[in-house]
Structures are given as structure tokens and as C-alpha cells.
């Protein structure tokens, strides 16, 4: 699938999190394969896909980890936050509870992910206008208060899906390229409770033969 076009300048690991049934897997399949399934099977544990995009003439490869939404899987999925430089925190605009739980997911990230992880709040299912339960302004204000970027998407009709990924990857890219100028990155260590810069080492050591962001 994605193994052929494997020339890239940056490799960013991004996680998709949020309540069960908000459409995480469909966002991923829409972005990576341009596919959508009205009834797609629940994600068990963690599933994986990649896609490359261009930013400033650089090829950025996104390695995206789609996680199961159910609480019980938290122990397994939290392990995947390690090394992630971005997170799409997804809720369903038609289900208020999934929005209320955003705070819990933020706490989850604070506990398990790198503290400088770039987070984007994503209100999915924007096609369900007649069922809207979460106001866009409200979510936007919440995102601002918490230093998150924000977007509404519809994996069903493709609205803003590419843009959401573009935006978060670009944001990560900006931080990383700025940081590279300021201070070259150190070793591959993530300690959630420490104040540490974002870790931009390649996620996979075997790919080090290729051009990497940090070399």
C-alpha cells in the first residue's frame, strides 16, 4: 500500500482518540484510502495506516494510529501514545456526551503522551446538521481555552477531512522545523511528567537510511 512511495522528509506519528462510535476509523479511512463505511466494525485495540502529504515542498509521512474508544482498552491504547507528536481528539457533533468526555481524553493525553503533543479537537459528523447537539462556537471556545486547534469534519461527505490532517501535520512541521533551528533534538525519551521538548526522532529506527527530519 504505502510502502512503495517511501521517500519522505519527516515521519510524524499521530493518534486518533475519542469516544466509541464518533467516527475515528472512518476519518482515517477517508484520509488514507478515501473510503467510508456507514457501518464499520469497531476497532479492537489499535489499527494502523499511513499517508504522505506535502508541506512547503517537504514530504511528510503521517503514521496514524487509530485506537479503540472503549474505556477497557485504555491500558493497551495508552501505550501507543508514546512517541506520538500529534493527536486528533474526535467527538460526534450529534452526541453531546462524546463532547463532554473530551476533558477525560485530554487528561488521558496529559498522563500518557508527550507533554508537547499537538492536539486538534475534531467535531466529526458535521453532515448531521439536523441532529447537531454541540454548537460549533462552544467547541471552538473550549479549544481556544485549552490551547487546541479546532475543526469540524465529515468523514461521510469528506468535508474538511484532508484539511484536518493537513492542518495538524503542518502545525507539527512548523514546531519541529523551528525547534530544529533552536535546539537539535535529543534521544528517544518520553517522560510524561517531565518538561521535555517534543520528540521528533523517527518512530522507526530501520528507516534511518532515508532522509529524516532530525538528521
Amino acid at each position: 500500500m504505502s510502502t512503495k512511495d517511501d521517500e519522505y522528509d519527516y515521519l510524524f506519528k499521530v493518534v486518533l482518540i475519542g469516544d466509541s462510535g464518533v467516527g475515528k476509523s472512518n476519518l482515517l479511512s477517508r484520509f488514507t484510502r478515501n473510503e467510508f463505511n456507514l457501518e464499520s466494525k469497531s476497532t479492537i485495540g489499535v489499527e494502523f495506516a499511513t499517508r504522505s502529504i506535502q508541506v512547503d515542498g517537504k514530504t511528510i509521512k503521517a503514521q496514524i494510529w487509530d485506537t479503540a474508544g472503549q474505556e477497557r482498552y485504555r491500558a493497551i491504547t495508552a501505550a501507543y501514545y508514546r512517541g506520538a507528536v500529534g493527536a486528533l481528539l474526535v467527538y460526534d457533533i450529534a452526541k453531546h456526551l462524546t463532547y463532554e468526555n473530551v476533558e477525560r481524553w485530554l487528561r488521558e493525553l496529559r498522563d500518557h503522551a508527550d507533554q508537547n503533543i499537538v492536539i486538534m479537537l475534531v467535531g466529526n459528523k458535521s453532515d448531521l446538521r439536523h441532529l447537531r447537539a454541540v454548537l460549533m462556537e462552544e467547541a471552538k471556545a473550549f479549544a481556544e481555552r485549552n490551547g487546541l486547534s479546532f475543526i469540524e469534519t465529515s468523514a461521510l461527505d469528506s468535508t474538511n477531512v484532508d484539511l484536518a490532517f493537513q492542518n495538524i501535520l503542518t502545525e507539527i512541521y512548523r514546531i519541529v522545523s523551528q525547534k530544529q533551528i533552536r535546539d537539535p533534538p535529543e534521544g528517544d525519551t518520553i517522560r510524561p511528567n517531565n518538561v521535555e521538548p517534543i520528540d521528533v526522532k523517527p518512530t522507526m529506527s530501520t528507516d534511518s537510511v532515508r532522509r529524516q527530519c532530525c538528521q
Binding site: S2, T3, E47
Partner: peptide, 13 residues
């Protein structure tokens, strides 16, 4: 036959 992380994981999943 798969020679990188992506290819392997996509196959295995």
C-alpha cells in the same frame, strides 16, 4: 517479503 515497518504492520493487520 515486507521490508519495513509500515508494510509489515499493514500486512499483519
Amino acid at each position: 517479503r515486507e521490508k519495513d515497518f509500515q508494510g509489515l504492520l499493514l500486512l499483519l493487520q
